[in-house]
Design a protein around this nucleic acid. Structure first.
Lengths: 125, 125
DNA sequence: CCGCATCCGTTACGATACTG
DNA sequence: CAGTATCGTAACGGATGCGG
């Protein structure tokens, strides 16, 4: 019984895509998933060190909803948060195709308006 | 020479996923692409009639950036906007895998917290 | 220190009324 | 019909504080 969801979104419609966007239609959630998919388990501080420079309150709130909806969880569920990295659940890992599709599209079509873009998904820190 | 981009995003990083989210990391852009992918060319009023009930100012602003970045264009480029539907460009159409990946994930994992969700991508209007 | 929470200014969103 | 203008609300983002 891991579902302790505080507030469900106000679903805009019955469309699956729309519903996914009700949950992850922001600029940060998929980047958190990306970091976990690329690096494996990752702590709060490590997320903060990513190139995109998320601020602490935003990170905390995004981690909370991702955890509420079962996409991420602490590596050691019984330990305290300190130094206890997050990891992807199986459900969270299955978001990978979304990120990869975005990535493919961006690499193919964003190069001319964003020359610094690299094929590397993220710099290793 | 179709690139008349007013304001490029402040790219947060060189990561392709991050860059895609800089452009489309919101709750509406992909739904506009969805409507065009499902229904073909579609007018302003038809977008407004979708289940998600986007408001007029948001729709106008999203259409503008999608057009600026070459994802959509008017069906008849030389005519006025009135009754002139938007259609996907080839670049825009290539966002389809992103929407489909989101859709697959949602259908697989969102059913229990969103029972009304249907396998239909969108109601035909 | 590390993982947040709080405060607060700024920006984006959203409903509605309105215009050509 | 295809958008703007307006204005209230919610989300974001930086700085800072605080408990463990």
């Amino acid at each position: 019984m891991k579902s302790k969801i505080e507030a469900l979104p106000d679903w805009r419609s019955s469309c699956p895509l729309s519903s996914a966007l009700d949950l992850f239609g922001d600029k940060w959630s998929l980047l958190i998933v990306r970091d976990l998919a690329m690096h494996g388990p990752r702590t709060y501080s490590q997320f903060l060190a990513a190139d995109e420079k998320i601020s602490t309150n935003i990170l905390a709130s995004k981690l909370k909803v991702l955890e509420e909806f079962g996409l991420i969880e602490h590596l050691n569920p019984d330990a305290s948060s300190r130094g206890n990295p997050y990891k992807l659940t199986e459900i969270g890992a299955e978001l990978a195709p979304v990120g990869l599709a975005f990535r493919e599209w961006a690499l193919k079509h964003l190069g001319d308006i964003h020359p610094q873009m690299t094929h590397l998904p993220i710099a290793i820190k």
